[in-house]
Structures are given as structure tokens and as C-alpha cells.
Design a protein around this nucleic acid. Structure first.
Lengths: 335, 335
DNA sequence: TTTTGTTCCGAAAACCTTTGCATTAATTTT
DNA sequence: AAAATTAATGCAAAGGTTTTCGGAACAAAA
């Protein structure tokens, strides 16, 4: 790589010291107008760009935030990334992405990389596999601000931004009941994830509120498209299959719809479905999927704003905030 | 932020000089075994992590690659990002993402950010708006390796990785013809993009090869879902609407399908459709979309491998390579 | 003439690490 | 015993920038 032009080059060409050039470049009043102009002119001519790495070193600040997600190509996460990049850009920060691919080991390694890159703050949505959080604790021990989003952990000294899973689920299930469903199945996320617990709780409470007994045989653990197709197929073959389905995310809802179509089950006639996410596919399929919008873009923005606030605040001794993103039920064709 | 532990801290605690500690940490044979062990033990205890920024400065190498895409939440791009991150991770590089949001001005600014971050190399898919490439030339003038992917420009001293648009289009259209289509419309990308030109050419050549005259009234400029719905609606209302459609990407194909469904046009009965991308949605919709797989993950990997090769090669005086990713027609239900 | 103020600029330290070149002490060779 | 070698460690510079603390030159005031 070609050597970039430095302040020293300018100083030598002009016969000034580096200190003078540095000050001239920032319009320091100690430097005469004439000198300032000469310096700035030459700097422009030579295409001088301050070396941010030198500044990083000097100020031990990188203007970089680290982002760790399970997978970038999941629509919800890419939407969040969009929001994150947006706010970072507005505030002159850069963002480094790492993905765990849902692997705990890779996540730990990624955190080490983040640490050695000396990022100013970290945004994390952890892997499904992750049960031990000491790698995140390491970030915190270094007093690097950390914000969890979507998949959160409230035990650490870190802010969190998450979907209001409980209410989202509660409303979705209530809506199914209002539409006449009596036997409502739920495709549920793993229960070690807070979001899994909260959505299940919302589901239960909605049933209870409407006087429908909870039946644990209607709870299925299922959170991918493929799983959903397989599980749905076996469910729909029974004669007493459910008349309503609340799915943990749009992909599982869509999997169920595909299985239903293959088995000649009509939606919303025989079965009503609500998803969770409001993904692109949810408005493309037929009938269009009734779903709970999670506002990923908003989530990304809020998480980043919170993180920047922590980065720019002078103390690490704060009380973590726990932001919940309100959801919205999008009524479409599957109910 | 808390001060991180440095080599100097270790040196002081142990009464050695920093040089000794530095060498001990890397098992330099000059240092006695006893010293090495003592140093490494304390380093571990204190949680010492080499300060990469200091190294960056010293070696003027950051082990970071810059990535500039139009939008992260587009499925195709997020798939590519996945491939990029994969290869970067394997080679101990980090990746910084920037998005232009299809805005030329923002792209220029992003390139400046990339430059001041002193990334070792850059991966770019430029905005639709972009006509002037001098900001990329600036990267090249600094002898920073640059690889264009998907939306490429072959006029610069940069490698490119792109979809084999011509053949992809040629086969897709040939396939439609074999399935009996005679009046095949094309939803085409902007013609200042190479991929737009190549796909149109593939379309034309396929028609010609099969003795079907080219009719420019069947060429529509359209590359978003919303556009596709609007345009399709007006097209399908005519009585001589096409019997085949080759769409520039899956979203436009899906838009056309939605419009067709609303107007009671049956697919594949009255109209056969082929998309381009093999997105998630394409296998979810009904009927499932016949489409051309672009292998985004592969593209991301290939582009990154090529970039790393350039970064690690000692000269900037190379002949750019132009890789084409083979496509594959996925036969599904819309033909 | 001496003091006091200005104005404009430079030297050097600091940020953290690596590395070529000493330096010291101990050991071996002549 | 003197000379040469070896082992273990330290010094200092370099990488680019900012910033504190002066310093020099000159003008104005006492």
C-alpha cells in the first residue's frame, strides 16, 4: 500500500514544525492567518487525510461500534443492521459486523476480536446455543458499554432493547380468540430465551383471560421454516387439529401455511394463523399473513442511540435501561 | 472507558523492560524460559490483550476490510454479507459495513470514511444513482485494493465478481420458450448498470435463437415490488397480455404474481413467470417461483478471497480479474 | 533601559508495540 | 590470564497526531 501523506510531509515542505501544521489545520489562533492558509492549501493539494489510527491510539477512542448477530441474512437482523448503520452514520461512527452463526464458540472468538479491535461499544444479539455469558462480562469488565437487543440478558450490567414480546403475543392470541378460535396452538421459541418465555406467557394469559384452558399439548417447540413444515404436517393429519396457530416468527407461520396448503386445509377457513415479525415474505404469500410487526429498524436505531449515549457519557456507573419496543398487529388475510 | 492493561504494566510489575515482555510474549528464544513463563502468567492473570491499534499504526495494516452495499436488508445483499463475513472470519479480518441507501452522495461520504479508517481493502456494490466513479478512483490512487461485486464497473483498476447475467437470462428465457411462451415480457433493470444490459441481451438472444422477433413494447423498466404490482396491473388489463414474463429479480416477479392473482390470471396457466435471485420468498409463495439462483453466498466468498489475495500480494501492479458466478435455473411451479 | 505583553512557533511527551543494536555478566576457548 | 563467545536483557527509535510548556522576537509601556 502506498504511503499516505502525513502532517510531517507538509511540515517539511513548508519548513514548519509538525506542531505548527497540526494547529494550522485546526485553525488554532496561535498560528498566523498566513501560515494557516499556506498549510491548508498544501494539505489539500497533497490530499492529506488525518490518520485516524494515530488518533485512535492517542485518544484510545476508535469511533467504531462492534455488532454481533447470529446471522446477517435473517431478514429481521438485516433490518436491524439497517437501523444501526443509520444512526452510526449520522453520528460519524463506523460499525464492524460479526456473526456467530448461532455457535457459542464462534461468539466467544468474535468477542475477543471485538476486544482487540478496541471498539468503543458493542451491540449484541447472542446465539441460541449461548448459556454462559462470561465473554460478555469480559466486555463489561473492560468498561466497554454493551447493549443487548432482541435476544437479551438482564443479569449483566448492560442496557437492553427488546420487542414487547408479552403484549405482542397477548394481543395476537386475543385476536385469534376474537376471530372465533378455540383450540390455538403455539409454535414456541426455546424457553431459555427470554423472548420465548414472554411470548408463551402472553399466549397463556390471553387464553386465561378469555376462559380457555391452557393445554400443553398445543405447545410445540419450533422455530425454523423446515421444522414448521414437518411439525405442521404431522399436526394437520390428526382429525382434531387446531383451529388457530400463533407462530413464534413469520417463517414458522409460513411453513405451517405451506403444509396446510399441501394437505388441503384452508386458511383462514379451517385454520387461522398469526405470525411474528412482519417480514417481506409475510406480505407476499397468499393469503397474506396476519402478523405482529416487530419494528426491527426502530430497534436497531434505539439500541444504537442508547449505546452512543453510554459511550459518550463519562461514567460507567449507570443503571441499565430496559427498553421495550411496542409491537403492532398487522391484520391481513390469514384470520 | 477503563484503561486496558498494557505491556508496560506487566513490565513494571515484574521489573523487566517492555522489550523483554514483548519478546517473552512471543516466545522469542533470546528470553529465558523462566522469564517467559513469568511474563505469560501475569499477562493471563491481568487479562492482557495486545492493542491492535498500536499495531495498526506501526504496521500500517488494520486487518479490516470495508464493505459498501446499497442496502443491508435486501435479501441478496445480506446473503453476500454472510459469505464475506465467513471468509473474513477464517482469515482473521474484520469487516466494516457501510450502506449507501442507493444515494450517490452518501456513497461518496462512506468512501471517505473507509479511507480515513485505513481499511486494508474495499468491497463495493455501488448505488443505482452512481454515474461518476471518481470516489472509487481515489481508493485506487491510494493503492488500496478494491473489488466490485454484483454491480460492477470494468473501467477501473479493480477486480470484479458478478453474476453471469447473460447466460442466466438466456437460459431463463429459453426455458420459457420451451414451455410454450410466444409473447415474453421482460422487467428490466436500469440500462446504465451492466447487469441490466447483460440480462436484456440474454433475453434478446434467446428470442432470436428461437426465431421469435424482438418487440420493444414488451420491455418494461421495473425493479421493485411496488413498481411491479403497478406496471403488471396495467399490463394484465390489456387483452393481448404476455404469456411469459422474465423478471429482473424475484421481488418484481412476485409483484407480478400478486397482480395476476388479483386480476384472476392463472399462473402458470395463462402466464408463466421466471424470477432472478432465488430469494427466500420465492420458495414460500404459491405457486413457488421458478427462478435463477445467483449464489450470493458464493459471490461474497469469492469476492472476499480475491480481495484478500490482492491485499496480501506485494504489488499493486496486477491485471484485474473478472469472475463470473454461474447461475442455475431452479424449476418450480410458475412455468 | 528595563519590564511587560503580544504574537507566533517549536520541542518533547504521550498513546502502545516491535525490533535493531547495544550492554552486561557469565562462560568457554586459547 | 586474556580473549572470545554466549545468554539475557535494556535502550531507543519508529509509526502519526495532539497538546503542554516554553522560547524567541518584537513592540509598547514604565
Amino acid at each position: 500500500m502506498k504511503k499516505q501523506v502525513t502532517i510531517k510531509d507538509i511540515a517539511e515542505k513548508l519548513g514548519f514544525s509538525v506542531s505548527t501544521v497540526s494547529r494550522a489545520l485546526k485553525d488554532h489562533p496561535d498560528i498566523s492567518i498566513k501560515t494557516r492558509e499556506a498549510v491548508k492549501e498544501l494539505a489539500k493539494l497533497l490530499g492529506y487525510k488525518p490518520n485516524r489510527i494515530a488518533l485512535n491510539l492517542k485518544n484510545s477512542k476508535t469511533y467504531t461500534i462492534g455488532l454481533l448477530v447470529p446471522e446477517t441474512q435473517h431478514y429481521f437482523f438485516s433490518t436491524i443492521i439497517n437501523g444501526i448503520e443509520e444512526v452510526a452514520y449520522e453520528n460519524n461512527y463506523s460499525v464492524m459486523v460479526f456473526q456467530s452463526n448461532e455457535k457459542y464458540m464462534r461468539e466467544v472468538l468474535n468477542i475477543q476480536a471485538l476486544l482487540s479491535n478496541r471498539v468503543d461499544g458493542v451491540l449484541v444479539s447472542f446465539a441460541k446455543e449461548t448459556r454462559d455469558f462470561s465473554h460478555f462480562q469480559q466486555i463489561i469488565d473492560n468498561e466497554i458499554p454493551l447493549v443487548f437487543f432482541d435476544r437479551i440478558n438482564r443479569e449483566l450490567h448492560a442496557d437492553t432493547v427488546s420487542v414487547d414480546d408479552y403484549n405482542g403475543a397477548f394481543h395476537a392470541v386475543s385476536y385469534l380468540i376474537e376471530k372465533g378460535c378455540q383450540r390455538i396452538a403455539i409454535y414456541s421459541a426455546p424457553q431459555h430465551l427470554l423472548l420465548g418465555q414472554n411470548r408463551l406467557k402472553g399466549y397463556k394469559d390471553a387464553l386465561e383471560k378469555h376462559g380457555i384452558p391452557f393445554n400443553k399439548d398445543l405447545v410445540y417447540s419450533c422455530d425454523t421454516y423446515q421444522d414448521a413444515i414437518k411439525i405442521s404436517r404431522s399436526i394437520f393429519k390428526k382429525k382434531d387439529f387446531p383451529d388457530g396457530l400463533f407462530a413464534v416468527n413469520d417463517m414458522t407461520a409460513l411453513g405451517a401455511m405451506k403444509a396446510a396448503r399441501n394437505l388441503g386445509i384452508s386458511i383462514p377457513g379451517d385454520l387461522k394463523v398469526v405470525g411474528f415479525e412482519n417480514s417481506l415474505s409475510s406480505s407476499i404469500c397468499d393469503p397474506e399473513l396476519t402478523t405482529v410487526d416487530q419494528f426491527g429498524f426502530e430497534m436497531g436505531k434505539k439500541a444504537t442511540k442508547l449505546l452512543l449515549k453510554r459511550i459518550e457519557q463519562d461514567t460507567f456507573d449507570f443503571t441499565p435501561e430496559h427498553i421495550k419496543i411496542k409491537t403492532r398487529l398487522i391484520e391481513r388475510g390469514t384470520c
